[in-house]
Design a protein around this nucleic acid. Structure first.
Lengths: 302, 302
DNA sequence: GCATGTATATAATAAAATGTTATATGATAA
DNA sequence: TTATCATATAACATTTTATTATATACATGC
């Protein structure tokens, strides 16, 4: 005997309530009838009152037993659920995934990848937090997120990163004469109004170098923090820009066309995560999945 | 190892989460440290993923583990609650008690008894359903209530009853000259306006016999179904009545006075319950408690 | 580097819980 | 009555959970 009620006893009790006889309950539990008999005897002894009345052959729970029944059902349900979700976790079907990313990603590439990822993982919940790179770094260091997507990242001892260089392209209004060229170089843009990222951003520095290498210099027309903003401007016919191909494809067909830009000025994305935090299996899997999704846009080294 | 996660493992897991180390968890669980170590190892194996990361000495649950934690807490809480309420039940402190009674009882004697009964039984819940005797009988036969209080009951094979004969008294307005007498007999009421129960009620028949025995006959003035209604009429100075002393005491001091009535016409109450339904301990205890509460009002056999 | 204290893991084994089979008891229906 | 069904009991095997004793890992201070 236990002295403490055991869930096994509750399980047996519940089965008998459901089936009306110990014999049938034992069949359902896949154990012998005496085993059920003992479990119930022990439970009744531990609880201190009778659990069943006989009633023309069937076992009917006493009022006291019925009083406990709802709680007992809840316990058994919960135990079932725990095994079930744990199985889902091992099959990477459940978990919680906290992602911090640049605002541009939250509205373009990422949602599609996340949606795809969630499709066959019904138990997984995702938090998506778009913010500036500085905040993303903070969150990684503070281990408040599992995974981050940022750019212009120099490294940090508490952060593990994988750098991915994404192709960039020159975008321009659909009807621009630039559409007649196969590739676009800085010198093709001298008469164009150029929309570019902030002058203190790493990407601007790279772009500037590319212009200098071609004997040109950038004349600022509009400064936009995000590539998506630049795309919007271009869609309005305001000017041209050099942006990640990721963003460009989203706007193609919305009044925007694009061509490769030479020399290559890759957008240096960083996939980051807290280095001291043991990554959950879901996190690892998502990171792989996300890196995979960027593959078609990767800058091939030349 | 179990192959199936056991609540014992969950308990150990929870204790370690709370205390940060296995050693302290083992102390809290009052078992040895190796026992905890194995429970956790088995649980991790059964679940299929790591439960903890080491982090400068402390054990910090992995993200997967944290994901399960809320459900685990709920299970353990529920198990606790089951043992707790079962303890309350054995100490007659919890349960559900369904009482059907005559409407008069629901507003006079019974509430006080129930309130007293509930005072030191915090977990007990009571349903009180007042209705006519016919319905009360139905409910007993249908086993929809645990306990009933009725009158004029002839017995029924599915109903167990205990008959209690309650003293009746003659009530009259405070300022009535009847107050000068020690006992009141039918002949004292010839000039009074008499309020009595329905002519087809068993109590009316008894009362009528008493009047006949005294050489009088009843002249109807007001017919009231319930004693309490009769009391209200008397309180308004409308007339006099013969009612259960139980009701009379409630109205004494509200403009009503009473004296013993002779010959004795007891009010024949029946405490009933479904004969086939195993009474819960709470029911038995309440029945005893209620019968006890009627003791001071019992008609002594003469 | 080494000793030291603390925390966890492992091994051998004991105790308790949970299962088995075989069989007795008790109630019900033919 | 007999046959049948459901449950209880007894003797015993297996599994789980605990124990003690001991080894290992790891950070800390010297």
């Amino acid at each position: 005997m236990s002295g403490q009620i055991s869930p096994r006893q509750l399980e047996a009790f519940h089965a008998v309530v459901e089936h009306g006889t110990m014999t049938r309950a034992s069949q359902q539990l896949n154990i012998s009838q005496p085993a059920v008999s003992r479990l119930l005897a022990d439970l009744a002894h531990d609880l201190g009152f009778a659990l069943f009345d006989r009633r023309d052959g069937r076992l009917v729970p006493t009022q006291e037993a019925r009083f406990l029944l709802p709680d007992i059902r809840r316990v058994l349900d919960l135990l079932d659920r725990i095994s079930e979700t744990s199985r889902d976790i091992t099959q990477r079907k459940a978990g919680d995934l906290r992602i911090a990313c640049l605002p541009g990603f939250a509205i373009s590439h990422l949602p599609r990848v996340v949606a795809d990822f969630l499709k066959d993982r019904p138990g997984v919940t995702v938090t998506l937090e778009p913010d500036r790179p500085e905040r993303i770094l903070e969150w990684m260091v503070g281990e408040q997120f599992d995974f981050g997507i940022t750019d212009g990242f120099d490294g940090h001892p508490a952060v593990e990163r994988e750098e991915i260089r994404v192709r960039t392209v020159c975008i321009f209004p659909q009807d621009s004469p630039l559409a007649r060229q196969d590739v676009i170089r800085p010198r093709d843009l001298v008469d164009q109004k150029l929309i570019h990222t902030r002058r203190d951003s790493p990407f601007f520095r790279l772009l500037n170098e590319a212009f200098l290498a071609d004997g040109q210099s950038i004349t600022t027309f509009v400064e936009a923090r995000q590539f998506t903003t630049a795309c919007e401007f271009v869609a309005q016919g305001v000017g041209v820009s050099v942006v990640s191909e990721l963003d460009a494809v989203k706007y193609r067909g919305q009044g925007v066309e694009y061509r490769p830009f030479r020399p290559a000025v890759p957008h240096r994305l960083s996939l980051v995560r807290p280095i001291h935090k043991q990554p959950s299996m879901i996190t690892l899997e998502f990171m792989e999945c996300f890196a995979e999704s960027l593959h078609p846009f990767r800058q091939q080294d030349e």
